Amino acid sequence: MLLFLLLAVLPLLLGIIYALLYSLGITGLVSDGFTLKYWQQAFTDIELWYSMGYTFYIALATITLTIAGALLLTIYLKEPLQQGFAGFSIYVPLAFPAIVVAFLIFQLASQSGFFARIIYQLGWISSTAQFPELVNDTYGIGIIAAHTFMALPFFTLYFINLYDQENINQLAKVGQTLGASSAQQHRRIVVPILLRRAFPTLTLYTIFVMGSYEIPLIVGRQSPQMISVLVIRKLRKFNLSDIPEAYISALLFITLIIIGLTLIFKNRNFSYDLDQ
């Protein structure tokens, strides 16, 4: 525990303290004594709040699509995915780093990419510029697609493992004996158990998506930007007054995440332990 605190918790805590001191003008390149002007500027910066909302939207859309896809694959294709070529193929996306996935999505789905050129050659569009904007787009379709591509195989395998561990097949048969239809077995037994057991992991992955950097940097727009890209951009700008705002943006994001986790996990109904 002491080693964990020294190697993981302490550096994070020191980084937060440094960011707070920098944002208050106590330390850093623009240090001129205690001041709240940077906090006032940050709270009135509409770009920051757009970025926060956009980040939460991307994360929720990604985890929703991932959960839906993983549940469908687990329920209807569980046996094929545990053997043969399909069982091997589902592991392949797990080997791709985030930056590789981002470039892959860009090369496939951009207006000059593979899909646009194929559709153009088929004569469905008169120029590749008519292909829908799927990367660097307002709705973050490219970002969501990249994260879903990475998360779907992982959570499918995770749900399949939970399915076997919790003997869900036997529980479903009990429900069938009591008169439950196939749809009722899925809705009242299979899905609730899987989601309840996977809830902590799903929550942590949602936070991971919120803090991702490479994917939104490559396939995202300049405005709005996800919070990680916004913070790094402000840190690297030549305007030194933007650096305190970058730290403030990061601190606000961390605060919102901590508040959200506290509100979610203080309710024992979300415990991953089915015995409670």
Rank of each mutant, 00 (worst) to 15 (best):
Y22E: 11
R236A: 10
V231Y: 01
E47W: 07
F96E: 01
Y205S: 15
Q111N: 10
L256P: 03
T74H: 05
Q276G: 01
I119G: 05
I125R: 07
W49T: 06
M1A: 11
S110W: 02
V100I: 11
L29A: 14
T262H: 13
F115M: 08
A95M: 15
Q107L: 13
P80K: 06
M210A: 02
S51D: 02
G33R: 04
A59H: 00
Q40A: 13
Y120F: 14
I118S: 06
L104E: 01
G69I: 04
A250D: 01
V231Q: 03
G28L: 05
Y139G: 11
Y158S: 08
R268W: 09
P80D: 05
L14H: 08
V92L: 09
A129E: 15
T255R: 03
P132L: 08
I119W: 13
G211R: 03
E79W: 09
F103C: 02
N136E: 12
R196W: 01
I105K: 00
I254A: 10
S249V: 01
L202N: 07
E214T: 12
L122I: 11
L94Y: 06
P97D: 00
T201M: 15
G140C: 06
Q165F: 06
L252V: 10
A129K: 13
F154Y: 12
Q222A: 15
F115I: 14
T156R: 10
P132T: 11
A59L: 00
L77E: 03
L178M: 15
T66W: 00
G175R: 04
G15L: 14
F199P: 06
I258Y: 08
T255I: 09
A151K: 05
A98L: 06
